Amino acid sequence: MTTTLITFALSTGRLRPWREGDEDSLSRHASNRHIWNNVRDFFPYPYTPRDAHSWVRSNKSYHQPTNFAIEIEGQAVGNVGFTVKDDIYRFNAEIGYWLSEDYWGRGIMSEAVPIVTRYIFDQFQVNRVFACVLSGNMGSMHVLRSAGYRHEAILRQAATKNNQYFDEHIFAILREECTGNE
């Protein structure tokens, strides 16, 4: 299976592997403080062309991608990705995503997250997919609920962002719960 064959249609675009040529669009759409406020600190801000080049280079070589560009009108405007965990968590994957603020509120993530969740269960030996959401990110919580994820826990003041403590909300879906969730 090559990365060029793994593409998923969205009503407004598609999910596909990252490729050379995405760097300008990526740095333009990802360099946004409102996005950065809701993601982990390893996501750079500002998001420079150099950051974009590194991201594309690190992702384009996978035969079985774990990060998918959200392409709308020929531009890479977001990402849905996951990490399969290890050790006693080896049958878990953590999903994460971001979308250009220009496209918020259009249902794009509500369409993309179930597709990638199904892909994870179909292609990897995973029994549980989970996501961590900072308190206040109601849009992301809505995306996960609409994709069939259950709210499992609130880790009180578990995360630090912008020198403030935030509760972290854990959402998860099990393989057995994902049937028919296309």
Rank of each mutant, 00 (worst) to 15 (best):
Ala158Asp: 01
Asp87Tyr: 12
Glu73Gln: 10
Asn79His: 01
Tyr149Met: 13
Ala172Gln: 06
Pro114Cys: 08
Glu23Cys: 14
Pro114Gly: 04
Glu73Tyr: 08
Arg57Gln: 10
Thr3Ser: 05
Tyr165Lys: 09
Arg57Cys: 03
Leu26Lys: 06
Gly21Asp: 09
Arg50Ile: 06
Asn92Thr: 12
Ile72Ala: 02
Phe166Gly: 04
Gly148Lys: 07
Ser61Cys: 12
Arg106Ile: 01
Asp41Gln: 10
Arg145Cys: 05
Asn32Thr: 10
Glu182Gly: 05
Tyr119Phe: 12
Leu144Ala: 08
Gly107His: 01
Arg33Phe: 05
Arg40Thr: 03
Glu111Ser: 00
Ala76Pro: 08
His34Gln: 11
Ile170Asp: 00
His29Gly: 02
Met141Asn: 03
Gly96Met: 13
Ser25Pro: 02
Val56Gly: 04
Val116Asn: 06
Leu144His: 03
Gln157Ala: 06
Glu111Arg: 04
Asp51Arg: 12
Ser135Met: 12
Ile70Asn: 00
Tyr45Phe: 13
Ser135Arg: 07
Ser135Asp: 15
Asn137Glu: 06
Phe68Asp: 02
Pro46His: 14
Ala153Met: 15
Val80Tyr: 01
Pro17Glu: 01
Thr117Asn: 10
Cys178Ile: 09
Asn37Val: 01
Glu94Phe: 07
Thr66Leu: 08
Val56Leu: 06
Asn163Ser: 10
Glu23Gly: 13
Ser100Ala: 15
Phe130Pro: 02
Ile115Lys: 15
Asn137His: 11
His53Lys: 11
Asn32Pro: 04
Ala131Trp: 04
Gln64Trp: 07
Glu23Arg: 06
Met109Phe: 00
Ala30Glu: 07
Met1Gln: 15
Ala9Arg: 12
Met109Asn: 02
Ile173Val: 15
Ala159Ser: 11
Leu155Trp: 13
Ile95Gln: 02
Thr4Lys: 15
Leu99Ile: 05
Asp102Val: 01
Ile170Ser: 02
Thr66Glu: 07
Glu20Leu: 13
Gly148Asn: 08
Arg90Trp: 10
Thr2Asp: 10
Glu168Trp: 03
Asp87Leu: 12
Val77His: 03
Glu101Asp: 14
Val80His: 02
Asn92Lys: 14
Ser31Lys: 10
Ile115Ala: 05
Gly78Val: 00
Ser61Trp: 14
Arg106Ala: 00
Arg156Cys: 03
Arg118His: 14
Ser140Trp: 00
Ser135Thr: 10
Asn163Pro: 01
Met1Asn: 12
Phe91His: 14
Val143Phe: 02
Thr160His: 05
Glu73Val: 09
Glu20Val: 15
Val113Pro: 01
Ile95Phe: 04
Met138Ser: 06
Cys132Asn: 14
Val56Glu: 03
Val56Trp: 03
Glu182Cys: 12
Leu15Cys: 05
Ala159Asn: 07
Glu73Ile: 07
Ile95Arg: 08
